[in-house]
């Protein structure tokens, strides 16, 4: 699969309300290319609820239901049940939520929907902050990152949502990144073909939230993978398969770049470098990444 083999059809129409350089619309364009026309999307409060644009127009060329912050997965369960009763079994139902609506506010609805084996896809686009409401800290914000509510840098490590999801023993879960469109496309295609609950998480580097120039969105995703700050994997039939560079990192065939290579381009970590280098926090960030990879190696190699 090469980029030129991806379908031409656009379901995200030009002229939306997204910021320039928005990773969410890059991800959504690829996801909807994979899911096709016969799809219902559930959107809780998140950036995408704004990107849709204002009444009476919308930028998305598929049926969309907006729902409360905590209820994305519950709403998807209801839509799926309704379609099933109408005999529309080939319609794909998917929830598209941010990391705030997944990690923090929507976790109980998500956990419930997966446990009930609801036949739907839950996609979390993770920009590691509540960017829609003005860059507040979320459970996905990494250690040391500035947000408007963690002015001196976050003092806690981020939650490992993948581990929580895998504990539900669901048929399919995956982690992807907007910088690898073929990988993301294949994962969504595969999720569409499997019955039962599916969970996909997409890393979405946010230019205004992470404070980097808007043309660097794709580069930030690539660096996140190369430094090991994010991993590409699939979890299918209780087996973990790492993809692309993450596979090479897991098998130690390539050396990961230091995490500093990734964070030094982001304004949200600037206080770690200026006026003096905060060696203690920088080491803690690197150690946290190493611990995650050591655990991956112990469990899945």
């Amino acid at each position: 699969m090469a980029i030129k083999d991806l379908p031409d059809t656009e379901y995200v129409l030009a002229g939306s309300a997204a910021c320039p350089g928005c990773p969410a619309t890059i991800g959504l364009r690829i996801v909807l290319k994979a899911l096709g026309k016969n799809t219902v999307m559930i959107v809780p409060a998140c950036c995408t609820a704004v990107i849709e644009s204002v009444y009476p127009n919308t930028s998305f060329d598929i049926p969309v239901m907006n729902i409360a912050f905590e209820a994305a997965a519950a709403g998807a369960s209801g839509v799926e049940a309704g379609l099933r009763m109408q005999g529309k079994k080939d319609t794909t139902v998917f929830a598209w939520a941010g990391d705030g609506g997944t990690y923090d506010i929507g976790i109980q609805a998500l956990s419930g929907a997966i446990e009930r084996q609801t036949n739907f896809i839950y996609i979390c686009y993770n920009n590691q902050i509540y960017s829609n409401t003005g860059i507040q800290r979320s459970g996905a914000t990494p250690l040391g990152a500035w947000t408007t509510t963690t002015v001196g840098g976050k003092t806690e490590v981020r939650k490992e949502m993948g581990d929580i999801i895998r504990a539900h023993h669901l048929p399919y879960a995956a982690q992807a990144c907007i910088s690898y469109p073929e990988d993301l496309y294949n994962k969504v295609k595969k999720a569409k073909s499997i019955k039962g609950p599916k969970y996909i998480e997409i890393l979405a580097p946010c230019p205004p939230g992470w404070h980097f120039p808007m043309e660097k969105t794709v580069d930030m995703g690539v660096l996140a993978i190369e430094t090991g700050a994010w991993a590409l994997y699939e979890f299918e039939n209780e087996k973990m398969i790492f993809n692309g560079k993450s596979k090479l990192l897991l098998e130690k065939k390539i050396e990961p770049k230091p995490v500093e290579e990734w964070i030094k381009y982001q304004g949200r970590f600037r206080h770690l470098f200026k006026p003096t280098r905060d060696e203690k926090t920088l080491k803690a960030i690197q150690d946290n990444t190493d611990i995650i990879w050591e655990r991956y190696r112990k469990c899945y190699l």
């Binding site: 129409l13 002229g15 849709e52 644009s53 009444y55 127009n57 919308t58 930028s59």
Partner: peptide, 14 residues
């Protein structure tokens, strides 16, 4: 209920 319809340039000429 009130629903929005898809349109290119929903936020005008961006």
């Amino acid at each position: 209920t009130s629903i929005s319809y898809p349109k290119e340039g929903a936020m005008g000429k961006t």
